[in-house]
């Protein structure tokens, strides 16, 4: 346990020195501010408080940004150590591969938590400043925070897996970007195209909802929007939120980190330094 924290501490120090922490925090805060400003237009027609509206827009932001940030932090985790030659060294220490991966995971998740807390905190501050009823949106904001962390954890695990399977930082970076494009952008487009082609048939009625649940990013969006009082803000695939029970979406969001870390560990065990 001590060793895991020693590894995590070292990773955090590296991230601070490399300005990774600064870059991620500034990105999250800036995007949150922009969304808050955009959401501060009168929302009387929706009948929801400012914070709930902001949370709904933040959900849409987090779906794109959190996986991207998580993949950027994690793609180098194994491949970088292989390239520097430090993996061979550290594996001769009395440290298990599980501990190595967990150390990195704790560090990266902490950095993500800090960035999310600051970003969402700023957004909440803006909402409170402009709407006295903003407190009604606090549970939604809190829910967004911990599900964002779970989403980030899933993509950290997937990133470690990519890093372990590709073995070199270059290919790992390419694969990470590819995975983000496929899971976050193309996946939804593909589903929409399939629905249009299917025209209310078997696919739309059964397979579609399972495919939505299978993708951690979609499950994350479904859970947050279905639990939110401002679903009307959501568009596109988010509209499907009504047809899927929140509990199933939550199960997907919660199980993905475990599955992703397990896959990463399986890949990491196969790496010969």
């Amino acid at each position: 346990m001590k060793r895991i924290f020693a590894l995590a501490g070292s990773e955090i120090r590296i991230a601070l020195r490399n300005r990774w922490v600064a870059i991620i925090v500034v990105t999250m805060v800036l995007f949150s501010l922009v969304l808050s400003a955009a959401g501060s237009a009168p929302t009387g027609a929706l009948g929801a408080d400012k914070l709930s509206v902001t949370v709904a827009s933040l959900t849409g932001l987090a779906v794109y940004l959190v996986p991207l940030v998580a993949l950027l932090m994690s793609f180098d985790a194994v491949a970088g150590e292989v390239e520097r030659g430090t993996l061979a060294l550290i594996l001769t220490y009395p440290v298990s591969r599980v501990a190595l991966l967990l150390g990195k995971f704790i560090a990266h998740l902490s950095i993500l938590a800090l960035a999310l807390a600051l970003g969402y905190g700023v957004a909440a501050g803006v909402a409170f400043a402009t709407d006295a009823d903003a407190a009604a949106g606090l549970p939604a904001l809190f829910r967004l925070f911990w599900t964002s962390l779970l989403l980030g954890a899933s993509f950290l695990g997937l990133g470690y897996g990519i890093s372990a399977y590709s073995g070199r930082p270059g290919p790992a970076a390419g694969l990470a970007i590819g995975m983000w494009l496929v899971l976050i952008v193309l996946y939804d487009l593909g589903l929409l195209a399939a629905i249009v082609a299917d025209d209310g048939g078997f696919f739309t009625k059964t397979v579609f909802s399972w495919l939505l649940l299978a993708n951690p990013a979609d499950a994350f969006r479904l859970f947050n929007l279905s639990a939110s009082s401002a679903t009307e803000v959501a568009a596109g695939v988010g509209g499907a939120a009504n047809s899927i029970p929140p509990l199933q979406a939550l199960a997907s969001v919660a199980l993905w980190p475990i599955l992703a870390l397990f896959l990463a560990l399986v890949g990491f065990r196969k790496v010969t330094p």
């Binding site: 060793r3 020693a6 070292s10 590296i14 020195r17 520097r84 430090t86």
Partner: peptide, 30 residues
């Protein structure tokens, strides 16, 4: 592992850490 030390060929420690920080990590790991 507890009694064997290794120095790999062409090892490149993380450039962002100082020598002392790097050695402190390895001490903790042992």
């Amino acid at each position: 592992r507890a009694q064997v030390a290794y120095l790999p060929e062409n090892v490149a420690f993380h450039p962002a850490l100082t020598g002392a920080e790097q050695i402190r990590l390895y001490l903790r790991l042992r």
